[in-house]
């Protein structure tokens, strides 16, 4: 649905984006990951037409981005705020009318959303009377009000308390189930890991990694397992089949971290262990996105 092609963006001496390309599929949740200052926000600004790229192009549904697409995209920036003196209802109404909704339609939808998110009585309140979490809810509503096809959330969960974060997360999943495509931008992997279908990792203005989350994790699996058992095991027993990385003694027995030798399977490990000890668990260590992220970022930094 969204195709970012060879985007270059140069600010004076600083190159914010260097030949970045991405594909975001319809109905998926896409994670745009990278440390602070990597160029995530610059890329989002290009997608939301806040700035124009120096070269490259962005296609939405196969069309080059143009003014008509503004109403199809919802954007919740990292630096987000509201007019302090304006009433909440007025404010959301104003923002949705700027996105092209009629007053009647916007009012109807605002009532719907306010009802849904327990904000029914907020219409006449002023922003300065709301807590930060409440303001974020208002901002979220303003972002999704016009039923955009693509919603871009920059650091969506920063500043939310756990309850509201959960609430918003559920709304996101619901919208996603209805077919809305999402792009998350964040430097905190754990917050989006469970939500994202695909990710792209950006560091130092370049994309260094992208693909489906499962695939990437797969790629970074390295035959490492955790094994816990009760009983005594000769340290040399597994020679040739696995390499011992770590060993810790727990209350119920011993926990090992092992790396299988090439060509060996977990069955080979069990074959050795079963006659000697009582095996409690054997589990593959799947690297978290956070680890992959750190690994990649430190690699490119070197």
């Amino acid at each position: 649905m969204l195709s970012v092609q060879n985007i270059v963006k140069q600010y004076a001496e600083h190159r914010a984006l260097d030949d970045v390309s991405l594909e975001v599929e319809r109905g998926k949740i896409f994670g745009l990951l990278g440390p602070n200052g990597a160029g995530k926000t610059s890329l989002i600004r290009v997608i939301t037409q806040i700035t124009a790229p120096d070269s490259g192009q962005v296609l939405l549904n196969g069309e080059r981005l143009n003014a008509n697409h503004i109403s199809k995209i919802g954007y919740l920036p990292e630096e987000r705020g509201l007019y302090k003196k304006m009433q909440i209802g007025e404010q959301v109404l104003y923002l949705s009318k700027l996105k092209g909704l009629s007053t009647a339609e916007a009012t109807r939808r605002i009532r719907f959303w306010f009802e849904k998110l327990d904000m029914g009585s907020w219409w006449d309140k002023k922003v300065e009377d709301l807590s930060k979490g409440m303001q974020q809810k208002v901002q979220f509503v303003a972002t999704v009000m016009h039923s955009p096809e693509l919603i871009i959330l920059d650091e969506p969960f920063s500043g939310f308390d756990p309850v509201n974060a959960e609430l918003i997360k559920n709304e996101i999943l619901e919208l996603n189930a209805q077919g809305t495509t999402f792009i998350f931008s964040t430097h905190r992997m754990e917050s989006v890991e469970e939500l994202c279908d695909n990710i792209a990792l950006i560091n130092k203005s370049r994309k260094i990694l992208d693909g489906p989350v499962d695939e990437i994790r797969d790629r970074y699996r390295n035959n490492t397992y955790t094994l816990s058992y009760a009983g005594d095991l000769d340290p040399l027993a597994g020679q040739g089949i696995f390499e011992l990385l770590e060993s810790t003694v727990t209350k119920t027995g011993t926990e090992l971290k092992i790396k299988l030798a090439a060509g060996c399977s977990t069955n080979d490990v069990l074959a050795i262990l079963l006659p000697r000890v009582s095996v409690q668990s054997l589990q593959e260590v799947i690297p978290s996105m956070n680890e992959i992220f750190i690994k990649n970022v430190t690699q490119t930094d070197l």
Binding site: Q49, I70, Y75, E79, R80, G81, K84, A142
Partner: peptide, 12 residues
């Protein structure tokens, strides 16, 4: 300072 600018700029 209210940080509304970026929200606005994505619409206008």
């Amino acid at each position: 300072t209210n940080r509304i600018i970026e929200v606005m700029i994505s619409s206008v």
